[in-house]
Design a protein around this nucleic acid. Structure first.
Lengths: 176, 176
DNA sequence: TGTAATATTCGGTAAATGCCGAATATGTCA
DNA sequence: TGACATATTCGGCATTTACCGAATATTACA
């Protein structure tokens, strides 16, 4: 049970960082950024850029831009230290960053299809495109809706109750 | 109201293809593949590789691999012509390809976090990681659930009723 | 104001990606 | 079987991406 004050990562942790990074990459994060995020998830406290860069073996400049990017996504939080220029980054407790972005994208696709459909298609094809639009907008709504739902739940009760009991039991989740 | 048998694209259509492609790209489709899919959405009938390549100004070989990729995603359908080697591709009437993949990814992230959490973190950080896992798995379930829901609806009633009131009349097509 | 500590910008570069087109494979018909 | 039409594979090239590290900007404080 590693402590993560500023020591190097254990083998398990390195593995976690790398494996998580490959799952994060498809969301459009570049590799370094993904690894940085995975690293933040392991840190008990916000970490400085130097610590991060050292732990991950990346240039500090890269860490700097990656961290800011994560912040924009809402996945990391930047903590300014009081009487110093030093900055620390920690994982945000909102995890919906990508998903919210994806949902926006789905909605954009839907709106694009909707608004252009009758300029570019007709007949059966038009109907198909309209259905595609409706499908995408519905999915977008579902996703943003659920994000809000879960975030509300979190605010009301803190980390989910099925976590409190958790040994390693697998929770069954009821969709919708 | 262009016909799309095999004529070149209108200006509006080219614009649609390009704009749609940029919205599709973030899902991991490479540009050419995205444009190809957008094109298929405009086609009244399945199109041959030559037609596609010509319309989009891309190499036929590129069209070939792009089309197969779309098929794997479940976004395109391949129609073999009867007594010939010629192949035609048309847009599938399932639009959930990406989303289903993303949902799988979310679930993978959740499972990874879940299974490794106590090997790489402890205390408060462990709880955080467990919550992240739960969050991702719930989102995954919600998305796949809604996809199924909409797809069922589609099978039962054809293109959504809020589409029926629209523009041109005509036949409901029984998908699948 | 100057100096030290830090973050940020940005040019350059190595690696990865995306695409073309020639070569090849595969299927169809006579 | 040969000849044709089509799809597919794959080497190579142009472009883009991801990252490093030196140079620069910013902040704190004496």
């Amino acid at each position: 049970m590693p402590n993560m004050s500023n020591r190097a990562l254990t083998a398990e942790q390195r593995r976690f960082v790398d494996d998580m990074a490959v799952l994060l990459a498809p969301w459009g994060l570049q590799p370094g950024t993904a690894r940085l995020y995975a690293y933040l998830l392991l840190c008990d406290e916000p970490a400085t850029l130097d610590t991060i860069a050292a732990a991950l073996g990346m240039a500090k400049s890269s860490a700097s831009v990656a961290a800011r990017l994560l912040e924009q996504f809402g996945l990391a939080r930047r903590h300014g230290e009081p009487g110093t220029k030093r900055v620390r980054y920690g994982a945000s407790n909102s995890y919906s960053g990508f998903l919210a972005a994806q949902a926006r994208l789905l909605d954009d696709i839907g709106r694009l299809a909707e608004s252009r459909a009758h300029h570019v298609t007709s007949g059966e094809t038009l109907r198909r495109l309209r259905y595609l639009a409706s499908f995408h907008r519905k999915m977008a709504a579902t996703i943003t809706g659920r994000i809000e739902e879960l975030s509300d739940e979190f605010l009301r009760r803190g980390p989910d109750e099925d976590l409190r009991t958790a040994g390693d039991s697998v929770t069954v989740n009821a969709p919708r």
